[in-house]
């Protein structure tokens, strides 16, 4: 599929900015996304091709704006719901809970 992910040959994204002494992860949440993703794939909930497919279906404006592990997170949620490991309702309840909006909502 051609889509926003297929960026090879575009020249609108500016200079490449290498970072000196770059850490493996830039934030704690990135680590959790990475580790959870690896386990989800090791446990066979979905494979890397499905994940990429899900990431490639993120809406174009969002795809460009969201950081790398944010795309992984969206792709992972999508696949876990698709395979019935979790439901959207359960995830929404958790979203409310972690934001202090009440677990019982």
């Amino acid at each position: 599929m051609n889509g926003v992910h297929d960026v090879g040959g575009m020249q609108c994204f500016g200079a490449v900015l290498p970072e000196e002494n770059e850490p493996v992860f830039h934030a704690e949440w990135e680590k959790r996304v990475f580790g959870t993703m690896c386990l989800a794939m090791i446990d066979g909930h979905f494979n890397v091709d499905e994940l990429r497919h899900a990431i490639e279906h993120i809406a174009p404006a969002e795809y460009c704006a969201v950081p790398y592990y944010g795309k992984w997170l969206r792709g992972m949620e999508d696949r876990l719901i698709a395979h019935g490991v979790i439901t959207r309702e359960e995830l929404e309840r958790k979203w409310a809970e972690v934001q202090g909006k009440g677990a019982a909502a």
Partner: peptide, 24 residues
């Protein structure tokens, strides 16, 4: 509904998977 902070969003998913017994 979706948390604007990615830290909260992964916390929600991880906590849900742990609750369901599919993530250690």
């Amino acid at each position: 509904l979706v948390p604007s902070e990615p830290a909260l969003r992964i916390k929600a998913l991880e906590s849900l998977l742990v609750e369901k017994g599919v993530l250690d």
